[in-house]
Design a binder for these strands. Structure first.
Lengths: 132, 132
DNA sequence: CAGATACTTTACGTTAACGTAAACTTCCCC
DNA sequence: GGGGAAGTTTACGTTAACGTAAAGTATCTG
């Protein structure tokens, strides 16, 4: 008895908090390709992972095209040297971008700390005035 | 002699590698409000910082509306208690999101490492075949 | 067996973030 | 003083990523 785990489009939509329209749209764009039982779409765990990657990409501001490229990077089906080198370069570029994002996040985090600090000070000032 | 440093729209466009159209669009959206010398826009260092924040937001996938909100957080002009509390909550939410992005980045970074590893292995296999 | 629920396709609509083009003014330069 | 170069306004165009509505099918359910 194999673990023939599958999902309906509604299940996945609920789990990832998106609409079914969104998931069908991704299929339209060639990002997922679920099987069909009759008309109905049947998603495998692999499809689910793909969805997860897409949504993670979204949280980082990636376009669907970028996410598609990223997903493609994880299965280098190529035995062509120049293609592998190109892939390597793409990976490198992504890493450069990721590093930039990391720095941006750290800066923003710091600024949020400062903002919260000033916010707290303002609140304290209000309190002290109240207690005159 | 004060440091009356200013910038033209073209200078800023070049520095940040965007078009002047983009900068004018941000003004349209109320994100910057440069002074005018006659018709011509004159940007202050503060405007320049604002632009920087917007573009950093873009790199993190923020919409202009989100960036506007963030920028607003840095100058809490309010002495209204409930508004300050609301601001505090917004700051908190942002931090939650930032933390998620951080985790996403770390995961992606790891996967890029793996992808690069497989890429290198494939390249090595090609080399060894060449040298028979 | 009527109705609710979940699925399907088709297709037009919407929003954000600019791009692009046209037509105009200002200033500088030889 | 003719012509770049850089600025301006106005306005229509474009793309991505879905939203929304309509109309139909399959399944279960009291």
């Amino acid at each position: 008895m194999s673990k023939k785990q599958t999902y309906s489009i509604g299940e996945l939509a609920r789990e990832f908090d998106v609409t079914t329209r969104t998931i069908r749209f991704y299929e339209d764009q060639g990002l997922v390709a679920p099987e069909r039982r009759g008309q109905t779409r049947v998603y495998t765990p692999a499809d689910r992972v793909t969805l997860k990657l897409i949504l993670r990409g979204k949280r980082l501001g990636f376009s669907l095209a970028e996410s598609r490229e990223l997903i493609g990077m994880y299965q280098p089906q190529s035995d062509n040297r120049s293609q592998l080198l190109a892939l390597q370069e793409k990976i490198h570029q992504r890493r450069v971008q990721l590093d930039q994002q990391l720095r941006d996040i750290q800066l923003l985090h710091q600024e949020l700390d400062n903002a919260e600090q000033r916010c707290l000070e303002s609140l304290n000032q209000l309190e002290s005035k109240e207690n005159v």
